[in-house]
Design a protein around this nucleic acid. Structure first.
Length: 287
DNA sequence: CTGGGGAAGGGGCCC
DNA sequence: TGGGCCCCTTCCCCA
């Protein structure tokens, strides 16, 4: 599953409009973390006035209730042994009360038979009846006495960890909560939204070239392009890289495996982007 | 057209 | 709750 599953909408272009955001940065305060790196600035992310016609916002007190509500899918109710009409207290209580029935996150914790792993994990069937193949592939083993997500059955050693994880499942159509006022993307938690807003405000600015970044460590990586620092070295050929992910991609060239196969022709590629480019180039012409 | 490196975006997890 | 880090992904460019 791609890590971007949390986001419902996608922009067509990855590069933010820095110029458009410049005034935002100028108008706001400082970020100590970014200052440490390059004298950059950090601005409070929610200072803009809220238009009543805007979508649900994190500063809406009622939305705070909605955001911790999790949809109770029919098969979850079955798993929980819940029968009959849904209890009133599990109904949507926020501004979107008419949208969907749900169970609050807090309520979901009051169901120990569901949360405690009594048996081996995996395999456990997911809400759709499918196995958690991705976790099986990762070699995830049994976690005795841990807490299990009711949606994806992923085990967590602590209740707090499970609580945080389960909010992610609010991306389901009935569970949207926080909407970015800049782009309209929806997030299940306030923290996720705050993190996203940084991609608009770009509070971390390189004092060498002036380029802005959303997070200090992104700026840190960028600064390496100025310093030439390459802390990640290939164990096979001693080639150095500034970015760990780039080293990982480089390692694939040593392994020689090409796991991305064209669905039409026999060609295979080491990177997904190469396969995509191959398909776009017309290997697989449509009807 | 393909292979590969560089740079960056962004969500998730851990502390 | 926030920061730092991890990881995956994408885009661009060049050979």
């Amino acid at each position: 599953m791609p890590r971007s599953f949390l986001v419902k909408t996608h922009s067509s272009h990855r590069v933010p409009n820095y110029g458009k955001l410049e005034t935002l940065r100028e108008a706001n305060g400082s970020c100590s973390a970014c200052k440490e790196l390059a004298g950059s600035r950090h601005l409070p992310e929610e200072e803009a006035p809220c238009n009543p016609s805007d979508p649900l916002q994190p500063w809406d007190s009622t939305s705070a209730v909605a955001c911790i509500s999790l949809p109770l899918l029919p098969n979850h109710r079955e798993t929980l042994g819940v029968s009959g009409p849904e209890p009133q207290e599990t109904s949507w209580v926020g501004p979107r009360a008419a949208q969907a029935p749900s169970v609050t996150l807090k309520d979901s914790f009051t169901l120990p038979p569901l949360l405690v792993l009594p048996t081996r994990w995996p395999p456990i069937l997911g809400p759709d009846g499918a196995l958690n193949e991705h976790l099986r592939a990762e070699g995830t083993s049994q976690v005795p006495g841990s807490f299990e997500c009711i949606h994806c059955h992923r085990p967590y050693p602590t209740l707090a960890g499970l609580a945080r994880h389960q909010q992610l499942h609010c991306h389901l159509p009935t569970g949207r909560a926080f909407t970015c006022r800049f782009c309209g993307k929806e997030y299940a938690s306030l923290g996720a939204l705050k993190m996203h807003i940084r991609t608009h405000t770009l509070p971390c600015i390189c004092k060498v070239c002036g380029k802005a970044f959303s997070r200090p460590w992104l700026l840190q990586g960028h600064i390496r392009t100025h310093t030439g620092e390459k802390p990640y070295t290939c164990s096979h050929c001693s080639r150095a890289f500034a970015d760990r992910s780039n080293l990982r991609a480089h390692l694939q060239t040593h392994v020689g495996t090409k796991k991305y196969r064209c669905a039409v022709c026999p060609k295979a590629f080491s990177r997904m982007s190469l396969l995509a480019r191959h398909e776009e180039a017309g290997c697989c012409p449509g009807p």
